[in-house]
Each structure stands twice: as C-alpha cells, then as structure tokens.
C-alpha cells in the first residue's frame, strides 16, 4: 500500500470539489496516510462468503401513495438562496463562453 502523496490529495480535492490551499496538501497527505493505513485492516478479516451490510434495517423501496402533499412555497424554497431572479435560483455560469 503506497503512501498518500500530495498529488493524490490534490486529486481527491478536485474529485471532492474542494479548492485546497497549498499548505493543506502536505498536512492532509500525512494525516490521510495515517488514517488509511489504520483502517486498511478491514480487508484482513472478512472472507469471500461474508455478505456486505449496507444498512441496519432490512428495507427495500418504501413507497407512499402518489398524491400531492403540502410543500414549501416558492418564497420559502428561495429564502436561503445566495442569489435569485424571477423566482428561480440564480447560479454562476455553467457553460463556456463559446
């Protein structure tokens, strides 16, 4: 198991949408390396025949009747918006200029 490098931290930061600062890369590299080294032992214990558990309750597809229920008004839904226009969330540019 190779150590976590600062390049890998930068990559994880990009995947996680975190614009990490330069000084954070070294700091997190050491810490993530230590944590991953410690948790890697999970692979020692469980054999092929052990099924995974994703959730404590044996639930599948909990449904409700498909009927209209009261919900937030547009004003309530937009009440925390960083920016809004014409009763919509206003977001920064998502496509390139050309």
């Amino acid at each position: 198991m190779p150590g976590i490098t600062r390049e890998e931290v930068a990559h994880l930061g990009r995947l996680s949408r975190l614009e990490l600062k330069d000084e954070e890369l070294d700091h997190f590299a050491g810490q993530l390396d230590e944590i991953i080294g410690a948790v890697a032992r999970v692979s020692e214990v469980a054999g092929e025949d052990v099924p995974p558990t994703s959730h404590p309750l044996p639930l599948t597809n909990v449904m409700r009747p498909d009927v209209v229920r009261p919900s937030l008004t547009p004003r309530q839904a937009l009440s925390g918006a960083p920016a809004q226009e014409q009763q919509r969330f206003k977001v920064p540019q998502i496509l390139g200029e050309d």
Partner: peptide, 15 residues
C-alpha cells in the same frame, strides 16, 4: 472492494 466493500462485510460480522 478493499475498503468500502470490506468495511461492509465487517459490519455483517459485528452484527
């Protein structure tokens, strides 16, 4: 598989 998958199996063993 090595990390998340194994951890889910450990969850089964603990249960």
């Amino acid at each position: 598989d090595a990390y998340y998958g194994s951890a889910q199996k450990v969850r089964t063993l603990i249960t």
